[in-house]
Design a protein around this nucleic acid. Structure first.
Lengths: 209, 209
DNA sequence: GATGAAAGTTGACGGGCCGTCATAGAGACG
DNA sequence: CGTCTCTATGACGGCCCGTCAACTTTCATC
C-alpha cells in the first residue's frame, strides 16, 4: 500500500470532514490532469478539460491551482518528491562509487518504466515535449550533484567539476531512458548496465581534462 | 553573409514580386515569433502576440502556419537544418573517433552560444521547458547515430549499441550545454573538453557491458 | 496599357476558454 | 439550533482562436 512508487498519496483519514474533502478534491484534479495530459498532451489540454474530468465546477479548480502549469508542476513535483528519497537511499547505501551510480541509474529506470505504465505514455509522442523545473525537480538535480560531490570528497571518485558531472549523468540517464522506453520490452537492466558503464568510464577521463 | 550560423535565410531576389513577398512575410512571422517566444516564453505567447510583432493581419498568419506550435517547429527545424551539415562535415573531416567527437561537440556548443545570443535566452528560464521533435531535429539525432555507427563500422570505436550511444552523447551534450549557458562567461572550450573526455572514456567501458 | 483570373490579405465574426466573483450551501462550534 | 466560516458553484466580461467573404495586388495575355 505504501509503495514509494505509487502516487496515491493515501488520503489522511484522521481529520475533519472539511480537510478530507479538500484533499480528495485536490487529488481528483491531479488524477484528472494526469489522464488528460496523457490523452491530449500538455499543450492541447485546457483547464476546462481537466475539470471536466472531475465532478467539480470550473471555478473550484482555481481554489486549488493557479493554472494548468501549476498542476503540471505539482505532478512533476510529486514524482520528484517520491523519487528523491530513493536516490538518497542509494547514496547512503553504497560504499563504492560504482554501486552508487548503478543503484541510482537502475532506480531511475525502474521509476521511469513504472511512471510510463501509469498512463504518462502518449504525452511524450505529442507536440513539443515539455519538462518542468520545479523546486523538487531541482532538488533531485541537487541530490545528484551532492551525491557526486560527496563521492569525490570521500575519494571514491576522481576530482571532477560536480556541476558538469551531475549534468552529464542526468543527461545520459534521461536520453537513454527515453530510448529504453521507446523499445519494447523495456529492458531496464540492459539500459542500466550501459549507462553505468558509460558514466564510470567517462568519469576518470573527464578528470584528466 | 552566408554564414551557416545565421538564420537570415537570405531572401532569394531573383523571383516574382509574389514569391518575394511571400518569403518576406514568412520570415517576418518567424522573426517576430523568435522575439515573442524569447520575451514571453513559448507557453505564454499567443498567435496574436506573434502577428502583432509584424505589420500583418491576424488572418494572414494562418496562410503560413497552422498554429503556434508549427511556428515553433519551423524555428527548431531551421536550427536543426543549419546545424546538421556542420555535424556531417565534422564526421567526414575526422579520421579518428576522438576528433569526430570533439569536433562535433565543440561545434554544437558554439552553435548553442550563438543561438543563445540571438535572443533565445529567457525562453529557458520561463515555465515548462519545451523541446521540439521535428523531422530536422530527428535528422540531427540520426546524423549522430549514423556518425557513431560509421565509426564503429570503420573500427574507430568499439562495438556499442548505436542507439544507446547516440542518446548518451546527445544527453551529455545537451545537459552540459545547459550548464555552460547558465554560467558566464560561456566557456565553450572547457565544456567541450569535458564532454569529449567523458564520452571517449565512456565508450570503451560501455562496450564491455 | 487594359483586362480578367489567380493568389494573397484583411479584419470582423461565432465559438470557446480564461480567471473572477457574488451567491449559495455545507461543515464547525457553542 | 443558530451563527460563522469556509468552500463550491456557474454565470460573466474579456481575450484568443481559426474561418471566411470581401477586397487588393500580381500576373499572364492580348
Amino acid at each position: 500500500m505504501s509503495d514509494v512508487l505509487t502516487g496515491d498519496a493515501s488520503i489522511q483519514e484522521g481529520a475533519g470532514r472539511r480537510e478530507r474533502s479538500k484533499a480528495a478534491n485536490r487529488q481528483a484534479i491531479l488524477d484528472a490532469a494526469r489522464r488528460v495530459f496523457a490523452q491530449l498532451g500538455y499543450e492541447a489540454a485546457s483547464v476546462r478539460d481537466i475539470i471536466r474530468g472531475t465532478d467539480l465546477a470550473s471555478g473550484t479548480f482555481y481554489n486549488y491551482f493557479k493554472s494548468k502549469e501549476e498542476v503540471f508542476q505539482a505532478l512533476a513535483d510529486d514524482g520528484a518528491r517520491r523519487f528523491r528519497p530513493v536516490l538518497r537511499a542509494e547514496r547512503e547505501k553504497a560504499t563504492r562509487f560504482e554501486d552508487y551510480i548503478h543503484g541510482a541509474v537502475h532506480a531511475y529506470f525502474s521509476f521511469l518504466v513504472h511512471e510510463h505504465a501509469t498512463g504518462a505514455h502518449p504525452i511524450m509522442e505529442r507536440g513539443p515535449h515539455v519538462r518542468a523545473n520545479t523546486p523538487e525537480t531541482i532538488a533531485v538535480y541537487e541530490e545528484v550533484r551532492d551525491g557526486v560531490t560527496d563521492a569525490i570528497a570521500r575519494g571514491l571518485a576522481p576530482k571532477v567539476d560536480p556541476d558538469f558531472l551531475a549534468a552529464a549523468c542526468i543527461g545520459v540517464a534521461q536520453e537513454v531512458g527515453d530510448v529504453m522506453l521507446k523499445s519494447k520490452p523495456h529492458d531496464v537492466d540492459r539500459a542500466a548496465r550501459f549507462v553505468t558503464s558509460f558514466i564510470l568510464g567517462g568519469v576518470p577521463e573527464a578528470a584528466k581534462a
